[in-house]
Amino acid sequence: MMEKLWPSIVCTTHVQKISAQNLIGSINQRIGKTFTTRALIQDVNEKSIHAAATLWRPLASNEIETGQQIHDERNRANIQSYNNLMETLNSLLMKNILTWKQQKMTISLLYLLLQNCVPIPSSCIRTFMDFLVHENIELRKHAEKSIAAICRLQKPPRIYIEKSLDEILHNVGQSIPTLVDGDCQPGDRHDNLWVTIGGYKQPETQTEWEQTCFLD
């Protein structure tokens, strides 16, 4: 549906009536506010299959194979429709047949379609790069947003490594602190001064406080 609807909205010819212009603008704003990225590739893990079999009944091997074929065909159709829509909108931008307002609507729709589950067509990336130096400032802003979104999508996921307190203290050359009921005592301790600037230790008495040099 989107494959036919969005290009039709973009290619709507200019009209003189203010009400018709407002309607087209409202449609574009509504799409921008309410559009959610569709999952083009739908995957079902083994845990979900076992849960479904428990709730209903175990499936025969031919039923599983038929369902997998339907699933794969649906994913291929979604990807093909997505690529067709991206290429159609991109070709409309590159043909220079749209007004600047239609170009703004087209590039904003392309921005909404960006996702990382399928490769982004290289022609669309090239178009975004070309529009970075466009004479219209609004089109340049949309191109900047699109390039930034592509960079975020290409960013690899963060890798978190869990380390024990013993390993952290060993790396900084400090000993293991005394545990209270199996846990480290909170607050300022000699073993956690490494998280402060220059090993700063808060003064505990009035004499130590008066000897603290704040400005040198």
Rank of each mutant, 00 (worst) to 15 (best):
E3G: 13
K4I: 13
L5C: 08
L5H: 09
S8G: 10
I9C: 06
I9D: 01
T13C: 08
H14V: 09
K17W: 06
K17V: 10
A20M: 06
A20Q: 13
Q21W: 00
L23F: 13
S26F: 14
S26V: 05
S26T: 15
I27C: 03
Q29P: 01
R30S: 12
G32L: 13
F35Y: 14
F35H: 15
T36W: 01
T36A: 10
A39L: 11
I41H: 02
D43R: 14
N45W: 12
E46K: 12
A51G: 01
A53W: 07
R57P: 07
R57Q: 09
P58H: 02
P58Q: 04
P58G: 04
L59S: 09
A60Y: 06
N62W: 11
N62K: 11
N62Q: 13
N62T: 15
T66L: 03
G67T: 00
Q68W: 10
Q68Y: 14
Q68L: 12
Q69V: 03
H71F: 01
D72N: 07
D72W: 07
R74A: 12
R74S: 11
N75H: 02
A77G: 07
A77M: 14
A77P: 04
N78M: 02
N78G: 05
N78S: 11
S81E: 09
Y82C: 09
Y82A: 12
Y82N: 12
T88L: 03
N90I: 07
N90W: 03
S91P: 06
L92K: 10
K95L: 07
K95W: 08
N96C: 06
I97Q: 15
I97D: 10
W100H: 08
K101T: 10
L112F: 08
L114I: 08
Q115Y: 05
Q115E: 08
C117K: 00
P119C: 00
S122Q: 15
S122F: 09
S122W: 01
S122T: 15
R126K: 14
T127N: 06
F128V: 03
M129R: 14
M129H: 15
M129P: 07
V133D: 09
E135M: 09
E138W: 00
E138F: 08
L139E: 08
R140L: 03
K141L: 09
H142A: 12
S146R: 00
A149K: 11
I150H: 01
R152C: 04
R152Y: 04
L153Y: 03
P156V: 01
R158D: 08
R158V: 12
I159A: 13
I159R: 12
I159V: 15
Y160G: 06
K163M: 14
K163V: 14
S164N: 08
L165S: 09
D166E: 15
E167C: 03
L169R: 09
L169N: 04
L169W: 06
L169Y: 11
H170W: 03
S175G: 12
S175H: 11
I176W: 13
D181C: 11
G182I: 06
D183M: 11
C184N: 07
C184R: 06
P186L: 01
P186V: 02
G187L: 03
D188H: 05
D188Q: 11
D188M: 05
R189W: 02
R189C: 13
R189M: 03
H190D: 15
T196K: 06
Y200K: 06
K201S: 10
Q202V: 14
E204N: 07
E204T: 04
E210P: 01
Q211V: 05
Q211Y: 05
T212D: 01
D216A: 04
